[in-house]
Write a protein that binds this DNA or RNA. Structure first.
Lengths: 230, 230
DNA sequence: ACAAAAGTGTTTTTCTTACACCCATGA
DNA sequence: TCATGGGTGTAAGAAAAACACTTTTGT
């Protein structure tokens, strides 16, 4: 059933800014573009919306097709619609960012698309307005990470508080006082300490922790709000 | 030049959630929809993207066509893309919210589209997912109003501090301690007190103030950040 | 003089910040 | 034993919250 008599129909794409974290660095997953124009140039992962899927589903599909990852944290952050943003044809793109466990993603990356992790501090020139997208995604991530417990999505199930601090330092590009940072963490009852230590990076060993979503939901109902500033 | 061989092209619309403020109430500008389906039902102001305009420009055009207002504060907040959100045909809609001086807008409203101001506390059922849009827009406004000086867009050039407080109370649906609120305002050097009082609502009269964007820009460069919480 | 809105001050408590300090352990 | 990252404690100061208080003026 068609009711609207409007002929103009731009293409509609989704682009994913995919964040990962490793060795104290916040990274971005980039691909070499596999279609013209600008084939071979660095690009975010994107794809065109299909008839049977919502925007959120399209973003999840693009992510899964290229990385094999499911159930990933995905958040829409902005639609990009400048007239000449895609030189080939008018395309509106809806920007999403994803937070993935870089260790898990890496294993399942197919190499044919030449995907690479690049430190956020060292992003090369990307096609179209993708650099602008990355900047907007990072802004949104910074905001979200201070007010919601999404940072954990970038870490393995088990992590140490030092790792968590290092993650936040990478996200914000600042250094954080360990004492103050840990005090805030100590108050979060939804961080469960495991009976297991990470002895990789120190003699003493650091306790592993786990984020417990159910406990967070409970704390939230009781009026606690997550806040983790740099 | 066409390079992409993708046939699927949904319609692309923009919808504007227009906020106004009057008599201590935060209001929404709604229209009776003038096309099928659901002609005559309450709706946000929307329109389809055209070939020669960006998303931002489309939103500004829709707003101007229907209210005559130019140079209005407009911010994109979310793209809506559920498959069945528009029953007539697949349409992706990019949501914008606008902050207007209700007094100014009112004068220039054409009546043929039957636009009405409705208190935000009493929004009727709207077509499609427009109620969801309003909720998202309000969330965004609340956040923006705490961290950026955008509230002034809803007030006349000259306003009293009591009006400003009343605005914030309406935006957040809470009551605010006058003493604490005013102390925060006193620190903002970019609020200029005029040599003129508003005597409409009190015997004593309240000083008029003006927001000075240049002074704000200056303060911002010096590291001051706007913060007005309820 | 008094009601009522405008506007200021003060006390209490809570949160930040900066930094000193102890702990555990492998080399 | 000592260097190193892990982890805790605390004192000074800033900021938030609660609320008592003063000012002005039309009636």
């Amino acid at each position: 059933m068609k009711t609207y008599d409007y002929a103009y129909r731009p293409l509609l794409a989704v682009d994913c800014t995919i964040f990962g974290f490793r060795d104290g660095k916040l990274n971005l997953l980039l691909v070499r573009r596999d279609i013209e124009p600008r084939r071979g140039k660095w690009s975010l992962m994107g794809g065109f919306l299909q008839a049977n899927e919502s925007l959120d589903e399209a973003a999840a599909r693009v992510l899964e097709q290229r990385t094999g990852l499911k159930e990933v944290y995905l958040e829409q952050f902005k639609a990009f619609g400048e007239v000449d943003r895609d030189e080939a044809e008018r395309t509106i793109s809806v920007g999403y960012y994803a937070l993935v466990d870089q260790e898990k993603a890496q294993l399942q990356l197919s190499t044919e698309f030449a995907a690479h992790w690049v430190p956020i501090t060292d992003v090369p020139p990307l096609i179209f307005d993708h650099n602008e997208m990355v900047a907007a995604a990072l802004n949104r991530l910074r905001h979200r990470a201070t007010h919601e417990p999404v940072g954990f999505e970038l870490l393995p199930e088990k992590f140490t508080l030092t790792q968590l601090q290092s993650l936040y330092e990478a996200i914000f590009g600042t250094s954080i006082d360990a004492g103050n940072f840990r005090r805030r963490l100590r108050k979060m009852e939804y961080l469960q300490r495991l009976n297991e230590k990470d002895t990789n990076s120190s003699r003493k060993g650091a306790w592993y922790y786990r984020f417990v979503p159910e406990d967070y939901a409970h704390a939230k109902r009781n009026g606690a709000d997550f806040l983790l500033k740099p």
